[in-house]
């Protein structure tokens, strides 16, 4: 259990999430990929606090911010999905390509 192993875990979670974000067609599954990527950030933040700079609380603050971002991302994502599903019956990313930009 070292900083490196924690970062390896974070890298694995981040990459799996990235795969989901890039490959999933369903918007809600894409959001689960985003959650997994932030999950990796949480693991890395906690590890950096413990193994690099435990005296200041910056790593802990980073974890708090990541957790908040996760909740906000989910809330905004579902609001957008609800809005576009209601307006156009769309729940796939391929059908919502015009949102790009």
């Amino acid at each position: 259990m070292t900083l490196q192993t924690f970062l390896l875990l974070a890298a694995a979670l981040f990459s799996i999430g990235l795969y989901g974000v890039l490959s999933q067609q369903s918007i809600v599954m894409l959001m689960m990929g985003l959650e997994l990527m932030i999950n990796g950030v949480i693991a890395a933040g906690g590890a950096f606090w413990h193994y690099v700079a435990p005296r200041t609380a910056d790593g802990q603050v980073l974890v708090l911010v990541a957790v908040t971002v996760m909740a906000l991302e989910m809330a905004m994502g579902f609001a957008v999905v609800t809005a576009i599903f209601r307006a156009r019956d769309v729940d796939l990313t391929d059908e919502a390509g015009d949102l790009k930009g």
């Binding site: 970062l7 974070a10 890298a11 694995a12 981040f14 990459s15 799996i16 990235l18 795969y19 890039l22 490959s23 999933q24 067609q25 369903s26 599954m29 796939l92 990313t93 391929d94």
Partner: peptide, 19 residues
């Protein structure tokens, strides 16, 4: 329900190796 599955796998694997 996936699109670009192969490319996504390659990119994710490359990012993992890099990180």
């Amino acid at each position: 329900m996936v699109h670009g599955d192969r490319a996504a796998k390659i990119i994710a694997a490359a990012v993992f190796v890099l990180l």
